[in-house]
Simulated assay, not measured.
Amino acid sequence: MSSNRSKGSGPRKGGAKRNENNRIYANPLPLLLEDSSSSRVRSVLGLVGLSLTRVSTPHCEGYFDPHTRSVWICERNDSMLLWRRGFFGKGDLSRSEPSWLARKLNDRKARQGKYLTSEEIREKRRADRRQFKLDRAAAIAAVAAEAEEIFEKEGRVIVPALSGPEIPSGATWRPATPLPETEAARNDSEEKRENEEETLEDVEHLQLTLFEAFFLSWTLDCLDILHPETDEPMTLRETWMAFQHAHLAPPIPDLPTPELQLDNPFLVHYVAYHHYRSLGWVVKGGIKFCVDYLLYKKGPVFTHAEFAIVVCPVYEDPADQEISTTNLQNASPFGWHWLSTINRVNSQVMKTLILTYVTIPARSRLSTTVLSSPACLGEYSVREVIVRRFIPARMRD
């Protein structure tokens, strides 16, 4: 019986994990579209351009921290919701996903003898490798000492063997069996384990950048930002002004608040963040690859980032840059050496470099009074330039 399935159409490796990720991270944004009507009703309403779909908006809470220029999400349910629906934020005790509690629970199970964590497996392998080298060196030294003793007693010259039944090899060597745990030690470990179970609590929080927090609060209306001192929800205008001031100068008591500027770093970088988020990309920080942002098609758990973004501010009026006090990064022309370095770093990790030019409106055309409202973002524009590294050996065709 012949099969119609092609040779390469079998089940792909990691299919179960991929399906689980598709289920967990099915929603690209915290908002959910709910439609309880039947298919017949939907088809009738679709003919006249109507729909009964309802947008369900969750409401999360976070604390604004001006010192770290971030918003902290302390409730675990809110943290997991924002991470699993759009990959917003980062766990302060994790590399990305807030998984500190899960790792601690795994460590506890490992100490109970159920399994070893990946870190413990790595350390055990390193310890076994060190012990193998010591045992092999001791066996070779013993054979050499025996040959030396035979030469002294009998005068026969024997070349010490570096292999054989007495010399352990990687295929024959086995680590020594650990001694059985005593009853007292077992009781102490069980008591310690019970104490850990009673005191273990989740101390990790999700840390949002100000760009992510404002996008969630203003664009999606699913985040309430609390004042760090009063614990009261901040209005949209208070949030907008606080985020701008946080990027102008560190909060120092008894010093006058700096004036808002059109070239505020928060405005420039938020324009780029909002631009790519509105196009459906998952935007994450790119400091690891010397860039401002990384763009993911679906999220970090699915694939690597495809594009690396460098935000390049451009003044509509060059005279504004001469009198500016913000000292924006990449606002001045950069050299080819810098550009080649950044491009090579990202080319080696299969990322396309994009220079995102954000145009800052001129002071002569726009007054700084418009900065009191997010409506001023409409005065900024975005242009993109893709930089590709030319490799003669690969691009001859």
Results as ranks from 00 to 15, higher is better:
residue 84 R to W: 00
residue 85 R to K: 12
residue 85 R to C: 15
residue 88 F to D: 04
residue 92 D to G: 00
residue 95 R to N: 11
residue 100 W to E: 03
residue 101 L to S: 06
residue 104 K to C: 13
residue 105 L to R: 13
residue 106 N to L: 09
residue 107 D to R: 11
residue 110 A to P: 03
residue 110 A to M: 03
residue 112 Q to I: 01
residue 113 G to I: 04
residue 115 Y to V: 00
residue 117 T to H: 03
residue 117 T to L: 07
residue 123 E to V: 08
residue 124 K to L: 11
residue 125 R to C: 03
residue 126 R to M: 10
residue 127 A to S: 11
residue 129 R to D: 15
residue 129 R to G: 12
residue 129 R to I: 04
residue 133 K to P: 01
residue 135 D to V: 00
residue 137 A to Q: 15
residue 137 A to H: 11
residue 138 A to V: 12
residue 139 A to L: 08
residue 139 A to M: 10
residue 140 I to F: 10
residue 143 V to N: 00
residue 143 V to R: 05
residue 143 V to Y: 01
residue 144 A to N: 05
residue 144 A to R: 15
residue 146 E to R: 14
residue 147 A to M: 07
residue 148 E to G: 03
residue 152 E to W: 02
residue 154 E to L: 08
residue 156 R to A: 12
residue 157 V to H: 05
residue 160 P to G: 08
residue 160 P to F: 14
residue 162 L to K: 02
residue 162 L to A: 01
residue 169 S to E: 11
residue 169 S to L: 00
residue 169 S to I: 00
residue 173 W to T: 02
residue 173 W to K: 02
residue 174 R to C: 10
residue 176 A to H: 12
residue 176 A to M: 06
residue 181 E to M: 15
residue 183 E to G: 00
residue 183 E to Y: 09
residue 184 A to V: 14
residue 184 A to D: 10
residue 185 A to R: 15
residue 185 A to I: 10
residue 187 N to I: 03
residue 190 E to H: 10
residue 190 E to Q: 09
residue 191 E to V: 07
residue 191 E to C: 13
residue 195 N to D: 14
residue 197 E to Y: 04
residue 200 L to T: 06
residue 201 E to Q: 08
residue 202 D to I: 06
residue 205 H to Y: 15
residue 207 Q to K: 04
residue 208 L to G: 00
residue 208 L to F: 02
residue 212 E to G: 02
residue 213 A to W: 02
